[in-house]
Amino acid sequence: MINAKNSERNLQNSIPTRRIGRLGEGLEVALLLLPALLLLLVFTVWPTLNAFWLSFHRENLLGTERDWVGLANYAEMLRDPAFWRAVGATFLFAAIVVPVQLLLGLLAALMVARPFPGVALFRTLFFLTTAVPTAVAAVAWGWYLHPVGGTVNRWLEAVGLPAQPWLTSPELALPTLAVVTAWAGVGFTAILLTAGLQQIPEDLYEAARIDGAGAWRQFWHITLPMLSPTLFLVALLTVLTSLTAFGQIHLLTRGGPMESTTVWIYRIYQDAFFNFRFSYAAAQSVALFLVLLLLAALQFRGLGRRVHYE
C-alpha cells in the first residue's frame, strides 16, 4: 500500500518524491529478497553445514551431548562392513534401475513422440506413473508380486515355472525393488525423452528417407545421436534418484531380507533413528553427499545448457 501511494505521488511530482522512491525501492528489494533467503539459510544452508559439524562429533550415551572426535566416524565408516554392504547394494540397485528405466522410457517415448490418431490416450498411459506416489507404487507391486495371489507368480505357474519369492529372498529382493523403481520412473523418463525427441527437426528424417534409409538406420544415425544430450541428462537424473530411493524400500522390505536391500540412505535412516548414532549417520550422509555432488555437478551443467536452449 505504501508503495502504491509512493508511485502515485511519483507520477504527480517526480522531484520531491525521488528520495522517498529510493527508500521505497530499498524496502521493496528487501521484501523480495528476505523471505526466500531466510528460509534457505535456516533450512538448507545451516543443516548442510551442521551435517559436516555433526560428522566430526560423537554423542555420549544419553545422546544429550556431543564430543569432538575428529575423523573417527569416517575412519569407522571405512572399516564398517555394514556400510560397504550398503554402498554395494546402492550401486547395484542403481545399475539395474538406470538401464531398465531408460529402455522402458525410451520405448514409450519413441512411440508417442510423433502424433498419430489416439496419441493423446497413449501419452497419458505412458506418462501415468508420474502421478503415482511412491507409496502407492510400492503397495501396487507388493500385491502384483504377492507370493500366492500375485499376477506375476500366476503367470509363472501358468507356464509351468515355480512361483518366486520376489521380495522375500535375499537374492531377488534388491533387483525386484530396482524393477519396481524403474517402473515408477517410466513416466518421468518418457516425458523428458518425448520432449527431447520432439526437438529433432523433421527434415532430417525426410532427407534420410529420400536417401532410402529405413526406420532402423534412421534410429541409429539420426534419433540416437540427436537425442544423446537428453539421454545423458535423463540418465544422470535417474542415477541421482535411484541412489536416494527410500520409500519403496521402507514399504516393501524394510531393508531386508538379511539387510539385502539396506541401501546407503536406508543405512543412514537406521543408524540415526534406530541405533541412535546420529553423528555416525551424519558422516555417512556427508559421504553420500560427495557422491551425489559429483553427479549433480554434471547434471547442473546439462540443466544450464538446456535452459539456454529454451
Binding site: F43, P47, T244, F246, A282, S285, A297
Partner: peptide, 30 residues
C-alpha cells in the same frame, strides 16, 4: 539491480546441488 546480485545467484545455483538426503538429519535436529 543490487549489490552482490551475481554472488547471490551463484549461491542459489550452489544450493541446487545439495540434496535433501544430506540435510535431513541436521534439519531433523533443528
Amino acid at each position: 539491480r543490487f549489490a552482490g546480485q551475481s554472488l547471490l545467484f551463484g549461491f542459489v545455483v550452489g544450493l541446487l546441488l545439495i540434496p535433501d538426503e544430506v540435510t535431513f538429519l541436521p534439519r531433523y535436529l533443528l
